[in-house]
């Protein structure tokens, strides 16, 4: 059975890195789902012809969306890396003993993948092209 809990109780729990990894997994998951919903609606406008779709796509070429894209990149990478960690631990339960170390390893991998891609993605903003 699933046990019910509240967000405040979750914060009070103070579970350390493992708890934050779990919280962030849920927050990034919801964030990616929100983007996916917008992305499906925007792709659907292909049905309204080239002009409508091209105008819709222009919305993405703004500073707001360029920065939001970096948030999306972070959310997808974090959710993917943390998700694969959970899956590996679930199928090899002995690894649960090393959860804290694996959480930190995940963060390190994330930083090494995320930072270069974030800088690359923000180059047009740095160059003042947007």
């Amino acid at each position: 059975m699933l046990e019910r809990t509240s967000f405040r109780e979750g914060l009070r729990y103070r579970g350390g890195s493992s708890m934050w990894a779990w919280m962030l997994h849920r927050i990034t998951g919801l964030g990616v789902l929100l983007f996916l919903s917008i992305h499906i609606l925007e792709t659907f406008t292909l049905s309204f012809g080239p002009d409508f779709y091209n105008n819709t796509m222009e919305l993405y070429n703004t500073i707001f969306f360029r920065v939001a894209e970096i948030g999306l990149l972070f959310a997808v990478l974090y959710h993917a890396i943390n998700g694969i960690r959970i899956t590996i631990q679930d199928f090899w339960p002995a690894l649960w003993r090393y959860e804290r170390a694996l959480v930190w390893a995940g963060f390190v991998i994330l930083i090494f993948v995320f930072i270069p891609l974030a800088v690359w993605g923000l180059l047009p903003v740095f160059r003042g092209e947007l």
Binding site: G49, P50, M57, Y60, N61, W120
Partner: peptide
């Protein structure tokens, strides 16, 4: 986002 580029995407 990095191969094609969002600014290149159109109909």
């Amino acid at each position: 986002h990095y191969g094609i580029g969002v600014e290149q995407l159109n109909y």
